[in-house]
Simulated scan of single mutants.
Amino acid sequence: MHADRHPDELYSFAGILTQHLPGTWTQELRQHTGDDNQQELTADVWDMNHIAEALAQHPPAHDVVLIRNDGLRLFLIDHPRYDDELLIAAMAPAGTPAEAFRGVREPDGIAISTDPEQAAENILTTLLPRYETALAQVQDNAARLSGPSVQPDTVVMTWTESGDLAVATERADVVGILTTHGFVHDGQQTYTASGDDSAHQAQCVRAAGSALGALNIGVTLRHGPMRGAPTTLPLPAPRPAAPNTVRSR
C-alpha cells in the first residue's frame, strides 16, 4: 500500500476537478484521527462494492467531500493501492428515512485518474447518471412515505428494448410535464426519453418525477418485455454489505 497524498494535495485536486463538472461546487477536507469513528464518518458513502471494501480494509487518514449547489455530494479518497488513481463515490442524501432506500441499488463508486479532466469525464459518463437515477428513486420513495394517506396517481415509465423510457398517457397535465422536461412525443399517446444519452435521460426522469410529485402523481419504473435490468435499477436481490463500513439501505 502506498502512502496517502498530503491532505492539501487531495483538496487541491478536488478543487480543480470540480471546475470540469457542471454546476457550482464547494469542497470540504476532513482529516481523521485514531479517535474518530470511521463508520460514522463514512456512513453516507453510497457504495456496496470496492469502495466499501477499501474503506473496511484501509480506513483513510483524510477525505474530501464535494458538494454541489443542489445538495448532491461526492466522497473522494486516495486509492489504497495505486498512486495514479483515486476513488470517488456518491453520498446518500442526508435526513432521508432508511425505508426510502428499500429496493434501490447503490450507485457504486469508481476509480478515477489523477488527471482532473479525464476524471471528470469518467464521473460524468459513469457515476453521475446512475447516482441521479438512484437519487430520483429514493426521493420518490421518500415523498410517498411522507405524503398524504390517499394513494397518488401513478405514471408508469417503461424501459424499451432500445434503452428508451416510454410513458403512455392521455392526461394533459402529465403530458405538459413530460414534454417540458425532455420527453418527446413518439406515437399517438406515447412520450419517450431517449436512452442514447444516459446522463440526459436520468436528468429528464428526475426532473419530471419531481414535477409530477408536486401534483401528488407517483412515478414507477418498469421493465418492458425482453429486456434485462439496467445497471442503475434495483436488482432482484440486494448484495451483501461489506462489514462495518456503510449503513444498510
Score class of each variant (00 low, 15 high):
Gly95Asn: 12
Gln57Met: 13
Thr114Arg: 15
Asp140Asn: 14
Pro243Lys: 01
Ala211Arg: 06
Gly218Asn: 13
Pro60Ile: 06
Glu9Ile: 01
Thr26Leu: 04
Arg247Leu: 15
Leu165Ser: 00
Glu117Ile: 04
Leu235Val: 14
Ser149Tyr: 07
Pro129Phe: 00
Ile112Phe: 05
Asn244Lys: 13
Leu215Cys: 10
Asp164Trp: 01
Pro107Trp: 00
Ile16Arg: 15
His185Gln: 12
Gln39Val: 14
Thr158Gln: 11
His50Trp: 03
His223Leu: 15
Leu212Gln: 01
Ala207Met: 09
Val138Arg: 04
Leu41Gln: 12
Val205His: 13
Leu55Met: 14
Gln39Cys: 11
Val184Gly: 02
His79Trp: 04
Leu10Cys: 09
Asp108Arg: 00
Arg68Leu: 10
Pro129His: 02
Asp63Ala: 15
Asp70Pro: 11
Pro243Ala: 09
Met48Asn: 01
Thr169Val: 02
Ala136Gly: 08
Arg130Pro: 00
Pro60Ser: 12
Glu117Ser: 08
Thr125Lys: 08
Gln27Met: 06
His20Cys: 09
Gln189Thr: 09
Arg206His: 14
Pro152Phe: 03
Pro225Tyr: 02
Asp196Cys: 12
Arg144Trp: 03
Leu124Ser: 13
Ala54Arg: 05
Val64His: 03
Ala214Glu: 15
Arg30Leu: 07
His79Phe: 02
Pro129Ser: 04
Thr18Leu: 04
Asp35Gln: 15
Ala214Val: 06
Leu21Lys: 06
Ser149Gly: 14
Gly187Phe: 13
Pro7Trp: 02
Thr179Gly: 05
Ile51Ala: 04
Glu53Ile: 02
Gly147Gln: 07
His2Tyr: 02
Glu132Thr: 00
Pro59Thr: 09
Ala119Val: 12
Gln203Tyr: 07
Glu117Asn: 08
Trp25Lys: 03
Glu161Leu: 06
Asn122His: 13
Asp173Glu: 15
Ser146Met: 08
His62Ala: 11
Ala229Met: 12
Val184His: 06
Arg222His: 13
Asp173Gln: 03
Glu28Ser: 08
Thr180Ser: 03
Gly163Ile: 08
Glu117Trp: 10
Arg130Gly: 03
Ala61Trp: 07
Ala237Met: 08
Thr126Arg: 02
Ser113Met: 11
Ala214Lys: 15
Ala3Cys: 13
